[in-house]
């Protein structure tokens, strides 16, 4: 009997604290598998954000730094500029990246810092208890929009891949999902490409991953997968938004 899915070395063998059905664990595994396959664990520095994935600094088996909310791309800039031989990735949620950290992500893309950003979009603030995010869908309920998001009051969901695609320095942008196993595999390929780009000095790469938050969506994990399929993907279409090689 052969074990087909060995636990990646780039993930510390410990139980993760995430809620049942939360997508963070799926994506953690994918990043770790990619680090193993590209043999970069020994020179990778990851940035753990503020939010549910704050403890990612414990989970990834590589050098890790935990930073203030939204500032991952700025920290990545400092890390990469001082240690160009390192592979630097910033792991960020949607409140982190598309609200408080909007300036950092945009300007890091403008400078085309040669880093990899993994953007977890679950359309809500998880750690703080389910407040409305910039990515919250119209009509979706959250603790700061209890009757559902009303675009007249709070605008419409921000689409980060589409926004960043207008920036010349953003070299690779893809939106994927992890709500089915085939989509998980597609997500892994995207993550791999985003890391490979950094190895090849292509420039700024980001993968936006549609994720679930069963706890704060207040629906069970299986129905959460369906929610991604039926609701989220309509607002946030999957696909490659930018794929340009270096030099341009």
């Amino acid at each position: 009997m052969q074990l087909l899915n060995k636990r990646p070395e780039s993930l510390v063998d410990m139980k993760m604290h995430y809620c049942p059905g939360c997508s963070h664990g799926i994506v953690h595994r994918l990043i770790a598998e990619v680090m193993d396959e590209l043999d970069i664990r020994n020179r990778t520095i990851g940035i753990a954000p503020v939010g549910c994935s704050v403890f990612a600094d414990k989970y990834f088996n590589c050098d890790m730094i935990q930073g203030p909310h939204g500032r991952g791309p700025a920290i990545a800039t400092g890390l990469k500029r001082t240690t160009p031989g390192a592979i630097v990735f910033s792991y960020q949620g949607d409140g982190d990246l598309s609200s408080i950290g909007m300036a950092e992500i945009v300007h890091t893309a403008i400078r085309s810092e040669n880093i990899t950003v993994i953007f977890i979009n679950n359309a809500i603030y998880g750690m703080t208890g389910g407040q409305m995010a910039p990515t919250t869908l119209i009509g979706q309920k959250a603790t700061t929009c209890v009757y559902g998001r009303d675009p007249k009051l709070t605008g419409n969901p921000i689409k980060m891949c589409e926004l960043l695609a207008t920036i010349k320095g953003a070299k690779y942008l893809e939106r994927t999902s992890v709500h089915t196993a085939p989509n998980v595999i597609k997500t892994k390929n995207a993550i791999k490409k985003a890391f490979k780009n950094q190895i090849d000095n292509v420039g700024f790469s980001m993968v936006e991953i549609l994720s679930t938050c069963p706890t704060n969506w207040k629906i069970d994990p299986v129905k959460s997968l369906k929610y991604v399929n039926d609701n989220m993907i309509k607002v946030f279409p999957l696909g490659v938004y930018k794929d340009s090689k270096g030099g341009e």
Binding site: A74, T77, G78, T82, V106
Partner: peptide
């Protein structure tokens, strides 16, 4: 030249960590 002071100090946080 950072986009803001907030960003600048976080670049420093990253650089200092190395």
């Amino acid at each position: 030249q950072a986009e803001s002071e907030v960003s600048a100090i976080n670049m420093i946080y990253g650089a200092a960590a190395t």
